[in-house]
């Protein structure tokens, strides 16, 4: 892949379109961070494609000065599959939301993840339908009062991380709209990952579901409300004076209280390993949820297996090696033919 001219700056990735999200929406911060990261990836701007479906988050491609395709509700992963499978040299980014990706597009998300194309799936999770003006979404909490659930939602929510792990994702991470350094680090990791990188970005919808993620967005509460995942380090959270850790026994996580100087590993606290061959460990982490547990933030799983597009190309190469380039005349004359003389 060609190296981007060093001159590329954040602003080179800003399109000439006015951004039309509500003031205070978490999407602004995500956009800014993605524009910040883009020049650092070393990909020429013309090789970057943003693909989206429908929803607030799906306006994203319009604001990026790259190639962009704003498609239809839920199907962005399928369009991205076609782009990447036909052009493995492109850097393909899918932007979706909890409604777009997990409701109407759940099937496409599932199958795109399992095929492991080398692309990035960014799911902005604000736990509500924004663009259609405030209905509960598939990630909304049971009991959520919304326009379409005035007595409270009776749906059980789906967890995006568990969904991705269940679909066989090779890279799964969670990050936060307003945590710029972490978001940027995860975007870098997602881009480096050779396969489908699934990233859940906790995003605040200031209009219809304000402060849904406040505990983890706010730096002060984050210390106890979030569990920062660092590969090779024990699963420890909380302030220095009240450190706690996560122990996993028989696949079931529980909280261990640590003495100030206690070694977490000796206390049975699990050490984070992104590369566990079995996804069970990552599943156990994915079950950690508020209010009983801290919410894990970071990379849950990062393993490698061959990508769809590389296997597709290998089949073409094999067929070419075995049979030579396709010959149309030979094909039309293959099998039984007969000649009628004049």
């Amino acid at each position: 892949m060609a190296i981007a001219p060093a001159a590329l700056k954040s602003k080179d990735f800003v399109s000439n379109q006015d951004v039309r999200w509500c003031p205070g929406c978490g999407d602004y911060s995500i956009l800014k961070n993605i524009q910040k990261v883009m020049p650092e990836l070393g990909v020429p701007k013309e090789n970057v494609v943003f693909v989206s479906g429908i929803g607030c988050s799906s306006r994203f491609p319009y604001y990026m000065n790259t190639y962009g395709f704003h498609t239809i509700h839920g199907r962005a992963p399928a369009f991205a599959t076609g782009i990447k499978a036909s052009h493995p040299d492109l850097s393909v980014w899918v932007v979706t939301g909890d409604g777009d990706g997990l409701s109407i597009g759940g099937n496409h998300l599932l199958h795109t993840i399992r095929r492991n194309l080398d692309l990035q799936l960014l799911l902005f999770n604000n736990r509500v339908y924004g663009l259609t003006k405030g209905q509960y979404s598939p990630t909304s909490r049971t009991g959520m009062h919304s326009k379409s659930s005035p007595q409270g939602s009776i749906d059980y929510p789906i967890d995006p991380i568990s969904f991705a792990l269940g679909a066989g994702a090779t890279f799964v991470a969670r990050t936060i709209d307003v945590d710029a350094p972490h978001l940027q680090e995860i975007l870098h990791r997602a881009h480096q990952h050779p396969g489908t990188a699934f990233v859940e970005i906790l995003q605040n919808c200031v209009v219809y579901n304000d402060n849904e993620w406040l505990e983890v967005e706010d730096r002060k509460t984050r210390v106890s409300a979030a569990l920062a995942l660092h590969n090779g380090e024990p699963l420890v959270f909380g302030p220095k004076e009240a450190r706690r850790g996560i122990r996993i026994r028989d696949g079931v996580p529980s909280i261990v209280h640590l003495e100030p100087d206690e070694n977490p590993e000796s206390a049975g606290v699990a050490v984070h390993n992104e590369a566990h061959e079995s996804p069970s460990y990552a599943f156990a982490l994915a079950t950690l949820a508020r209010p009983d547990f801290p919410l894990p933030i970071g990379v849950f799983r990062a393993v490698e297996k061959p990508t769809y597009e590389s296997m597709l190309q290998a089949q073409i190469d094999d067929a070419l090696a075995a049979r030579g380039p396709g010959d149309l005349a030979a094909l039309l004359h293959s099998g039984d033919t007969w000649t009628v003389e004049s």
Binding site: V51, F69, T71, I72, R75, A78, F79, A80, T81, G82, I83, K84, A85, S86, H108
Partner: peptide
Amino acid sequence: SVAIGAAF
């Protein structure tokens, strides 16, 4: 959708 993606 994959076909349209490829066409794009």
